[in-house]
Design a protein around this nucleic acid. Structure first.
Length: 507
RNA sequence: GCUCCCAUCGUCUAGCCCGGUCAGGACGCCAGGUUUUCAUCCUGGUAACAGGGGUUCAAAUCCCCUUGGGAGUACCA
């Protein structure tokens, strides 16, 4: 029996989760489900200064909207809790102490200001200050003090942090499921802070301790963590703990130019970068979300899944269960992916046209009530939707393609008038109106048949008649089959539009 | 700057590990066809192995260098 698969998604509640984060969560989720493992949500809120109210709630709601479910977490519970690091505060100090005792960490009494100053100085000389095997020899830390001095500092309550002691002259070899073997020399690493002077652990310590305690088997996270992997590996070794397997996901890049996808790109190029709308609690600024923009969560997830992973086949449309079935970490690419807002729309189109007419009508009915204060008969809406759904990417775009079903045209597209409204159109339309009035069963089939016969008998041009008629009924050169339009409008409305149109255009 | 990661059409990508295919698919774009219009749809087209060196009968595929891009470099995660 192999080990139990346990993965976690560990966001920091410092703001809305952006789509890159959603993708990381998604890959974790797919991996867990595929391998009969557990998916855990852990909130990493060790930085009290960056706490943003509502962010935690937002993260959970977004993931729920996407259909990403957790087996353990702050809502779901579980036997490895608590799942919020701020509530695990008491756990970490002992591990920090353990590292000091084993000689893997030390106290550092340098103040933030002192270090800032050193960084500034180094920068002036076009160098970078690093707290490492070289510089630590001349700084205010326990490595340079005897036990009495250290104790004195501690007893007097001098603020301190705990730093990890990077071993000298070794090379660290790490294995990444996506990148293979990565090797780094220990001299290039710095003695990272593990425990802050405010009594909270840093990400590095809390993360390793919690992953160990929660028996995480696979750490699947963004590539921005790759540079701290050596530290994490060293930490596991210092604790003498079994390491999880690591997989560092490539980043999501901006659609144009270079760099990591950011909120600004969305504003600039006009697409959401967040799954749901977010209102900044301090500035009140609103960032748009996929949900509010009319995207189906399935489409959003499908798009995200294919951004950096592929099934190795030509299939592009995947439901969640199909994604789970097909997913594997070794088909995740190594290079960053530029996000394509256009293809995202295409995905939504694919999901929209797969909705049943009934379901789509239900959605649109809600929209019509909310946006246009219309409450049309459902049967009619189902019919309209069946006629036009192929044309749109979003439910809210249906109106643009179908407004004429609800509103009598008030103006007529001038270009079309010029092209389609001929001198004899007026007479022809009058005759046609009488013909239509005569039809008892006002169905598309019947209408089509009658018109066709009339046109043939009088040797009229199909295009000429139909285009002029369309102009009167729709006001423009757009829309589905005319027979269908008239069936939906009904006899009375159709004839009314023809008469008023003739009147308007004869002036 | 330093450390690490990455590199196939404009974009997402298959192919690379285990060298031999007209380098395949999708989005977008363009053209043609269907249609009473528009859209859909169908057909076709556009367009890539970053550059250079090796290894080999043969390199997108293996090796090296260059270039380009990305990330990290906080008492943030």
């Amino acid at each position: 029996m192999s080990e139990n698969i346990r993965v976690r998604f560990a966001p920091s509640p410092t703001g809305p989760l952006h789509m890159g984060g959603v993708r990381t969560a998604l890959y974790n989720y797919l991996f867990a489900r595929k391998n009969d493992g557990k998916m855990i949500l852990r909130i990493e809120d060790t930085d009290q200064t960056r706490f943003v109210p509502g962010a935690e709630q937002y993260i959970m709601e977004s993931l729920a909207w996407c259909g990403i479910q957790f087996d353990e977490g702050i809502i779901e519970g579980g036997s490895y809790g608590p799942y919020r690091q701020s509530e695990r505060k008491s756990i970490y100090a002992a591990y920090s102490d353990q590292l000091i005792q084993s000689g893997n960490a030390y106290y550092a009494f340098d103040t933030a200001e002192e270090l800032d100053e050193l960084r500034k100085q180094a920068e002036a000389e076009r160098k970078t200050f690093i707290y490492n095997s070289e510089s630590r020899k001349s700084l205010r830390n326990s490595l340079n003090m005897n036990d009495v001095e250290v104790k004195k500092h501690l007893d007097e309550g001098v603020p301190y942090v705990v730093r990890f002691l990077i071993p000298e002259n070794t090379s660290i070899t790490m294995n990444d499921l996506i990148r293979g073997t990565v090797t780094v020399k220990s001299e290039t690493l710095d003695d990272k802070v593990l425990f802050k002077s405010d009594g909270m652990p840093t990400y590095h310590l809390a993360n390793i301790v919690d992953d160990h305690l929660m028996e995480i088997s696979h750490v699947i996270r963004g590539e921005e963590w790759l540079p701290s992997l050596p530290l994490h590996v060293l930490l596991y070794e210092a604790f003498e703990w079994k390491k999880p397997q690591f997989a560092h996901l490539p980043l999501l890049l901006k659609p144009d130019g270079n760099g990591k996808l950011s909120k600004r790109d969305g504003d600039r190029l006009g697409f959401p970068v967040f799954p749901m709308q977010w209102k900044d609690p301090t500035t009140g600024e609103i960032s748009s979300g996929y949900r509010e923009n009319g995207y189906y969560p399935e489409a959003f997830v499908n798009m995200l899944a294919l951004l950096g992973w592929n099934p190795g086949s030509d299939q592009e449309i995947f439901g969640m269960n199909e994604l789970i079935e097909a997913f594997s970490l070794d088909r995740v690419g190594k290079s960053g992916s530029k996000f394509d807002p256009e293809k995202t729309k295409w995905f939504n189109h694919q999901y929209l046209i797969r909705q049943t007419d009934e379901a789509l009508a239900q959605e649109w009915l809600k929209w019509l009530k909310a946006e246009k204060n219309l409450e049309p008969e459902k049967k009619k809406v189902v019919k309209i939707v069946s006629l036009i759904k192929e044309r749109v990417n979003f439910v809210q775009e249906l109106w643009e393609e179908a407004n004429f079903f609800f509103e009598t045209p008030e103006s007529y597209d001038e270009k079309v008038v010029k092209k389609r409204w001929k001198t004899d159109s007026s007479e022809q339309m009058k005759t046609l109106a009488i013909l239509l009035d005569d039809i008892q069963d006002f169905s598309a089939e019947m209408i089509d048949e009658k018109i066709k016969i009339w046109i043939t008998e009088n040797e009229l041009s199909m295009g000429g008649i139909m285009n002029a008629l369309r102009l009167l009924l729709v006001g423009a050169a757009k829309g589905p089959h005319l027979g269908d339009i008239m069936e939906v409008l009904g006899k009375t409305e159709s004839i009314k539009r023809i008469s008023s149109g003739i009147k308007a255009l004869s002036n």
